[in-house]
C-alpha cells in the first residue's frame, strides 16, 4: 500500500537497539504497574468475591467483579488504541492483573494464611478481554466496541467461569443439611474475622423470580460494563493528554 511509504520511519541499528531497550523497559514496567494498580483497586472493592469460593454466588459475583474489572482494561485499551493502534490493551491489563493476582493468592491466602488453593482461586477475565480487543480491531469503532465487546464482557463472565465453579455447587448432604461444597469450605476453614453473615451473596428478592437469576444478572452486568467502558476509556485517554503546567 502506498500509505506505508509516508509512514516509513527510518532507523539505524543504533536506533533500533535503543528503541528495543525502551520496549522492554516499558513492557515490564506496565505489567507491574497495571497489574498492581488494578490489583490494589480491585482488592478493596471486589476482592472478597475473588478470594473466596463461598462468595461466588449467582447474584453479586456475576455483577460486581465484571463491572469493576472493566475499569483498567478499558482505559488501557483506550490508550494503546488511540496512541499506538496496538489493540491489546484489555488483554494486556487483564493478563498483568491475573498474573500478579495468582502470586498474591498463593503466597497470601495459601502459604501465609493457610487456606487450600481450591478455596481461594480467582475468576478469569482473559477471554472477555480478547473479545473486547478483537471487537475494536474488527470494527475500528469505540462506540461499537463498547456496545458489543463490553456488553459481552458482562454477559459472558458467568459462563466463562462456571467451568471452574460448577463443581463447587454440587449439593452435599452434610449433618442432615443441604449445602454446597463451596458453603462447606466456608464453614470448615476457619475465618475468625469473616463470619458467614458478612458474605454478600444471594440477597434481594430476585431469587424468587422463576430461576432467571443468572441471565438477568448477566444482562444487567453487561449494561453496566458498557457504561463503565465508555467512562473508563474517556478517563484513560484524558489522563493521557500531554498537559503541562507552569505552576502547581
Amino acid at each position: 500500500m502506498a500509505v506505508t511509504e509516508t509512514t516509513e520511519v527510518r532507523s539505524s541499528a543504533l536506533g533500533l537497539r535503543l528503541e528495543r531497550h525502551v520496549d522492554w523497559m516499558i513492557i515490564i514496567i506496565l505489567i507491574l504497574i497495571i497489574g498492581a494498580a488494578s490489583g490494589f483497586t480491585l482488592a478493596v472493592t471486589m476482592g472478597d468475591w475473588e478470594y473466596w469460593v463461598d462468595w461466588k454466588d449467582r447474584r453479586f459475583w456475576p455483577l460486581v467483579p465484571p463491572v469493576l474489572m472493566m475499569i483498567f482494561p478499558a482505559a488501557v485499551l483506550g490508550i494503546t488504541w488511540t496512541k499506538l493502534r496496538i489493540p491489546f490493551g484489555a488483554t494486556f491489563a487483564v493478563f498483568s492483573y491475573t498474573l500478579l493476582k495468582w502470586v498474591s493468592l498463593y503466597f497470601n491466602f495459601n502459604v501465609f494464611a493457610g487456606f487450600p488453593m481450591s478455596m481461594v482461586w480467582q475468576s478469569t477475565f482473559i477471554p472477555l478481554a480478547i473479545l473486547l480487543d478483537a471487537t475494536i480491531v474488527i470494527t475500528g469503532s469505540v462506540f461499537i466496541t463498547g456496545f458489543v465487546g463490553a456488553f459481552l464482557w458482562g454477559v459472558l463472565m458467568y459462563p466463562v467461569n462456571w467451568v471452574m465453579l460448577a463443581g463447587f455447587h454440587e449439593p452435599i448432604l452434610y449433618n442432615g443439611e443441604l449445602v454446597t461444597a463451596a458453603d462447606l469450605m466456608g464453614f470448615e476453614y476457619i475465618r475468625t474475622g469473616l463470619p458467614e453473615y458478612v458474605r454478600m451473596i444471594e440477597r434481594s428478592t430476585l431469587r424468587s423470580f422463576a430461576d432467571t437469576v443468572v441471565p438477568l444478572t448477566a444482562v444487567f452486568a453487561g449494561f453496566l460494563c458498557v457504561l463503565v467502558f465508555y467512562v473508563s476509556w474517556a478517563a484513560g485517554t484524558f489522563l493521557c493528554r500531554q498537559t503541562w503546567v507552569k505552576k502547581v
Binding site: 498492581a36 478470594y51 502470586v103 498474591s104
Partner: peptide, 9 residues
C-alpha cells in the same frame, strides 16, 4: 507490584 497486590492482600 509488591505493595499493590502482594502486601495489600
Amino acid at each position: 507490584g509488591v505493595l499493590g497486590s502482594f502486601a495489600t492482600e
